[in-house]
Design a binder for these strands. Structure first.
Lengths: 241, 241
DNA sequence: ATCTATATGTTGCCTACCGAACATACAAAG
DNA sequence: CTTTGTATGTTCGGTAGGCAACATATAGAT
């Protein structure tokens, strides 16, 4: 893959009209994000917002007792740092790199100014936020009702959709952290999926072999979230919105 | 309580500047909402938005198999129908009256126009949305990690904060639906709380006797959500925002 | 005052998941 | 090619909460 880095790898940036795109590009910085890197700490200030291209960022809530749970993920379909333009300045969750890769970052103030122009950029960002809300809501439902295996499938699918390859670099321990379950639970579920030829993994590398079957093993939550993203953010290449 | 109905009973309306408040009031309709009434169906269009004054509305996701889970609640601190100005037009959740009472409703288009002016009303609504997002995120965490009893406490506290009285009209069956757990689980937890003199209930009426103890029995989620609402929406009476 | 719908109480069994402790086995570095 | 850190496998007992089936009690209607 010798694709030259390009802001348009991020769907939100890609959806901008030429005028806005040209206004923002000079300020976009291409940065590499390492696995496990903490982008935002709960309660911290947002100096930059990030538009992932090949990376995936996980929004994680860490409890007082150290337990954790993933709230949502942000990949090339979105942007990290919505609380900036929502007016909160900070969030109560932590943002961690779930899958190493690249992103374009932008100084907070610049995005804020752009947002406050109130034009298509604002509308686009709000629609994205709405999709993210759906993801969070569905996570709540999923946490309540679905088995570890179903959730693992959902999680793999959501990750897959945000990557170009069908392999993800991710230990079961880390997945367990994201899902807020024990590692053993993930091991068992993953073992089952492997035995049935749905996935394949070795020490931190998971390859999805049979995506169709994976979808069938997942709970409805994956489809609900995906459908909502597709509805709110269909592929619009500079078509405004 | 012979308080004359007043839009300012809703904190968002109360926070408006005089100019905006005067612009909107002529279009506000005072309506009564009955327990169990469905305000929005999943996927439906939003004809009105609602600013509760004495009612509480529950955002509920209903799964394919009929199971359900509450995503968030909306009371006198907020507004039902954020997806309107977020650009989604619809949501994937259902909105049900959890506690009967009154609300002011506004034709969707009017709020949308006001939002699109981009002034303080927009900022206020976005900050509210941010608080709501926190509530959803915390619900996800809570569903993952906390016991039925802890969740019941959190739920009672959140409801209490949105009412003027310390009594709520609500069967255990309904609470169970909201929390997405079995009724028996609620019965047990409620029984324990009653035996310890924290609450008191009889056939659909729950009275909170010792709020302090209730807070101690709740998980951290209640405080996190409350703190975020207080931070983002402190009592601002027409102070703009 | 009685009836009846409905809210609450209770019990037993079952499964998924937790917590902890430990065994194995692979990959990368020396 | 061996070492060693780390990822994965497995097992055990414990428990919360699921599902089902039923008992009781009370508010409100007649």
């Amino acid at each position: 893959m010798t694709v030259v880095a390009n802001p348009k790898q991020n769907h939100l940036l890609d959806a901008l009209l030429k005028a806005e795109y040209d206004r923002l590009t000079p300020d976009l910085e291409h940065v590499e994000l390492k696995l496990g890197q903490v982008m935002y700490e709960s309660g911290g200030l947002l100096k930059y917002v990030y538009f992932p291209t090949t990376s995936i960022i996980s929004l994680l809530y860490v409890m007082e007792n150290g337990g954790s749970a993933e709230i949502a993920v942000v990949g090339n379909e979105g942007v990290l740092g919505i609380s900036l333009f929502m007016g909160g300045e900070t969030t109560s969750s932590r943002a961690v790199i779930q899958s190493a890769g690249f992103a374009y970052r932008l100084k907070s103030q610049i995005l804020k100014d752009e947002f406050n122009r109130g034009g298509p950029v604002q509308r686009l960002l709000l629609r994205y936020t709405q999709a993210l809300i759906t993801q969070m809501a569905q996570t709540a439902v999923c946490n309540r009702h679905h088995s570890v295996e179903q959730q693992l499938c959902r999680w793999l699918l959501l990750s897959l959709d945000r990557l170009t390859s069908d392999e993800l670099t991710m230990t079961q321990e880390l997945i367990a952290n994201m899902l807020g379950v024990r590692r053993e639970g993930v091991t068992e579920a993953a073992g089952r999926l492997q035995r049935e030829g749905i996935i394949n993994y070795t020490r931190g590398h998971i390859t999805v072999v049979d995506r169709k079957k994976l979808e069938r093993r997942s709970c409805e939550c994956y489809q609900v979230v995906k459908a909502e993203f597709d509805r709110l953010l269909p592929a619009l290449h500079g078509i405004a919105n």
